[in-house]
Amino acid sequence: MHEHPLHRFFKFKREQPIFQWERFQQRDVLVINHPHCQAVFSRQGAQLLHFKPTGQKPWLWCAEKWPQVGAIRGGVPICWPWYGRHPSENAWPSHGWARLIDWKLLDSQTDEEGVSLHWRLTLCDWQVDLHARLGESMELRLSTEHQDDEPCQMSQALRAYWRIGDVAEVALSGLDGVIGYDQLNREACEQKGELRVDGGCQRVFQHDGEMQLNDHAWHRALSIDTGDNANTVVWHPGRRPLLGVSWSEVMGFVCVESTSGSTRQQSLAPGEQAHLSLHARAGLCSA
């Protein structure tokens, strides 16, 4: 298993501030070193790239090599204001502009239990805010306010790459009996029992409540909640190559994402807000 590429910021047992800006692979990154957790954000995309509660293995996967320009693969990219390909403009980037643009850090606070951060992106007639709470658990909340005087269409996602021991030894529970859509086979599906992603998976589920990512190789579990008003997307490329990512790296992640508008665009009236959330905590690994 590869060492997390951002672990280098935490190797030395020296006193360092809780929040510290560094430069890594041509990006500005905010290194967070709190008694209860370690984390790294990229200013580009307000992207949480690394999160590790004290005494645990990292929760998020991140590619070792980043492109000189463009999106960083890994962590929790913010896909906004569209998810996947743009519905009409083929030349526009997949998953929107938000993960390609520098965000402004409005606030960062610390207390005995963890850290809180507030990032903002203002683009045209949109205002997008990301609130993060990190400690022994991880919570991300994305809010979009539409400030134009005409209705608009949008879709969005918090696309989390969860770090695992081996994709062949993970199973996602909590979806038994849930109806979804298999985008690889282009057909409706109903999940029966645990979902295993080895060999490739791209499914969208209409699901409320917690799921549990059981990682038998690492003998751990993560309880993941994508919120009440979102779809849950489970994705792994299987044997399809990913540009700039080695095969051994691909074996070390699975995506469980919180999305809205992924199957049909979400409509926002002038002044209306859209919300998306992703919460994770440590669970008990099932046998």
Rank of each mutant, 00 (worst) to 15 (best):
I224G: 04
A160L: 00
A168I: 01
R99D: 10
C285L: 07
C79H: 13
H86G: 06
G70R: 09
Q212G: 03
I101C: 12
V40C: 01
R196A: 03
H34Y: 09
P151K: 14
L49I: 09
G199A: 01
E136I: 03
Q47L: 06
E113T: 02
E190Q: 11
H95D: 10
L117S: 12
A98E: 11
E187C: 08
K52N: 02
E22A: 09
N185P: 10
V254S: 07
Y181M: 15
R14C: 08
A217D: 14
R85K: 13
C62D: 10
Q273I: 15
G135L: 00
G209R: 04
A71C: 06
S267Y: 12
E169M: 06
P5C: 01
E150Q: 14
P58T: 00
W66H: 14
G55D: 04
H279N: 11
L142C: 07
G75A: 07
E169Y: 09
E89R: 15
N231T: 09
H36Q: 07
Q56S: 11
N185G: 11
V234T: 07
L140R: 03
F41K: 11
S137Y: 06
M1R: 09
S258D: 04
P241V: 13
P77N: 05
E190Y: 05
L121M: 10
D149N: 12
K65M: 06
E190H: 05
W97Y: 15
H50N: 12
L222K: 14
F9N: 10
A39H: 14
D129L: 02
K11V: 10
V115L: 00
H36P: 03
S223Q: 15
P151W: 08
A230T: 11
E210H: 09
Y161T: 02
W97G: 13
Q156H: 03
M138T: 03
N231G: 09
R23Q: 10
R120F: 00
Q266P: 08
V167K: 08
A132W: 02
W97A: 13
Q25C: 00
G180L: 02
A157C: 01
W61G: 04
